[in-house]
């Protein structure tokens, strides 16, 4: 990576200073990245200090969120964030991996490029547009068709009981799934591409059918990387804000039913931050942000570690 040092035998007097200054400027810009991470963590910590000292660790498992009574607990939001993200993963990971399989193993060459481009375009759609579409297109359809059908056929499960409003945990799961599909698909595709062809050829030579080749030679080989892709998708899902805020119903409650409205860490911050009237209220929102930041960073680091060596850079691959 480093270039050979200057080879001029007699450097002009005073020529060293600009070189050093330039190197330092570049170094400082690069160090900015590290400074930014520390800054983000520190500022959120500073903002939540009041709430940290008032509630301590109990903040995390108190389920009461009542700004009027000055009672703040994070549990409904942690629950909402986890449930909506896991629902999204349940939908997006099988679909994403299947699409990646289709793109790397089955699709005719001339179809691969357009489909890949369509998936990249899906990644370019802003969250707020998904939210708008969610409110006026997706939710009415879910409410009148899919939810009714689910209640009818799977209504014996507590997951699919209770009144159907439309805005719900499940709607949030669906919209997040659509939003993380591009990253899950493109990372999975990258991983499947790295499976050596020898694997496939060996399996075919043993007389395996196409599915057997995929299962024995491709999927089992790529298992760890695909898991990493799922975790990376989880990292994105946890922090999704706008679209979720618009479809989840924004009610801080813990309900077994997926038809019930919920609330996530990111959405409560988006909704209540500018309305927070007291210092403690604002500080509690900062603490929610701190929880969100800690969880997403841990999840992202886990994904990086799992994907290390399989794909080069994760971030630069998904525009």
């Amino acid at each position: 990576m480093s270039t050979p040092s200057s080879t001029s035998i007699l450097p002009a007097p005073g020529s060293r200073f600009p070189n050093i200054a330039f190197k330092w400027a570049a170094g400082l810009a690069a160090a900015m990245i590290i400074v930014l991470i520390i800054l983000v963590g520190w500022e959120l910590y500073a903002g939540s200090r009041l709430s940290l000292s008032k509630f301590g660790a109990g903040f995390l498992w108190s389920s009461e969120w009542d700004p009027v009574a000055e009672k703040y607990g994070a549990l409904p939001f942690i629950f909402g964030t986890l449930v909506s993200s896991l629902l999204a993963l349940l939908i997006a990971v099988p679909l994403g991996v299947a699409t990646a399989l289709f793109l790397t193993e089955l699709a005719p060459m001339r179809m691969r490029q357009p489909i890949t481009m369509a998936i990249e375009m899906l990644a370019a759609v802003p969250s707020v547009i998904f939210g708008l579409w969610g409110i006026f297109v997706l939710i009415p359809w879910l409410r009148d068709h899919l939810f009714v059908w689910l209640k009818h056929t799977l209504g014996f499960l507590p997951l699919f009981q209770g009144p159907i409003y439309g805005v719900s945990m499940l709607a949030a799961g669906v919209i997040i799934a659509i939003m993380i599909l591009p990253i899950v698909t493109s990372i999975s595709r990258e991983i499947l591409r790295s499976v050596p062809n020898l694997q496939r050829e060996a399996a075919y030579a043993l007389g395996a059918t196409r599915w057997e080749v995929l299962r024995i030679a491709v999927l089992s080989y790529a298992r760890r990387g695909l898991f990493g892709a799922a975790i990376l998708g989880l990292g994105r899902a946890l922090g999704e804000t706008m679209a979720v805020t618009m479809v989840i119903g924004n009610r801080p409650q813990i309900s077994a039913s997926l038809f019930a409205p919920g609330y996530t860490l990111a959405s409560v911050i988006a909704n209540e931050f500018t309305e927070a009237t007291t210092d403690l209220y604002l500080s509690s929102l900062f603490e929610l942000g701190l929880v969100l930041l800690a969880v997403t960073i841990l999840v992202n680091i886990a994904a990086q570690i799992m994907l290390k060596g399989i794909t080069g850079s994760v971030s630069s691959k998904v525009a």
Binding site: G239, N300, S315
Partner: peptide, 18 residues
């Protein structure tokens, strides 16, 4: 630095606002 950049990329956008 690359690792930090990838981590920063994963920071939820709402956190930047705060």
């Amino acid at each position: 630095i690359r690792f930090a950049a990838d981590v920063l990329n994963g920071v939820p956008s709402i956190v930047w606002g705060m």
